[in-house]
């Protein structure tokens, strides 16, 4: 795990006193490694220190639920192509989240995070996982699944109730 998480990620994934963290996963299980978000959500065991919402392919639909949880920290987890090695994790700056055009057909993650920031005043982070494939098929690649399992284990251990 030490190779998987750099200092910034380790620090982010350490519970802070008087702070509740909300993890929002994003992605589609029908697009190979894009399903890593939902896969991680299914393995996380929420505690008093953190909650999980699975946003799937319509993350805008969980905004109300997220606001009601009143988190101080929000972490989005999604597959992200940053030309890294398959399964590599990276903390992604907000300005690097694609500002794709808003339409009736899609709401960019950047807009969703702006709404959440406005309504919760939470600090928002994005963890990207480099996919190997986002083709139309089910199931994660070996590399991405290994990283996802390690990340789930790390979060469950760090954020578990005493």
């Amino acid at each position: 795990m030490s190779n998987l998480l750099d200092g910034n990620l380790t620090n982010l994934l350490t519970p802070k006193e008087f702070s509740h963290t909300l993890i929002i996963t994003v992605g589609s299980g029908f697009r190979a490694d894009d399903g890593v978000g939902p896969y991680i959500a299914s393995g996380l065991k929420p505690s008093s220190k953190f909650s999980v919402l699975e946003g799937g392919y319509t993350p805008e639909d969980i905004i109300d639920d997220a606001v009601q949880l009143g988190p101080q920290v929000i972490i989005f987890i999604d597959a992200a192509d940053f030309a890294g090695k398959a399964g590599e994790l990276r903390l992604i700056d907000a300005e690097h989240i694609p500002q794709s055009s808003l339409s009736t057909h899609s709401m960019p993650l950047s807009v969703i995070s702006r709404i959440l920031q406005e309504d919760t005043k939470a600090v928002i982070h994005f963890i990207g996982i480099q996919p190997k494939s986002v083709e139309h098929k089910e199931g994660l690649s070996k590399e991405v699944k290994a990283s996802a399992d390690a990340l789930v284990k790390h979060i469950n251990e760090r954020f578990k109730d005493a």
């Binding site: 808003l102 709404i115 406005e118």
Partner: peptide, 26 residues
């Protein structure tokens, strides 16, 4: 100029729009 500034200026409107969309989706 776009939907994004409404998040600050018309937050109730934004939340209502997203709530209505979610309800149709559900």
């Amino acid at each position: 100029k776009s939907f994004v500034p409404l998040i600050q200026t018309h937050n109730t409107v934004v939340r209502r729009a997203l709530r209505m969309k979610k309800e149709c989706n559900d």
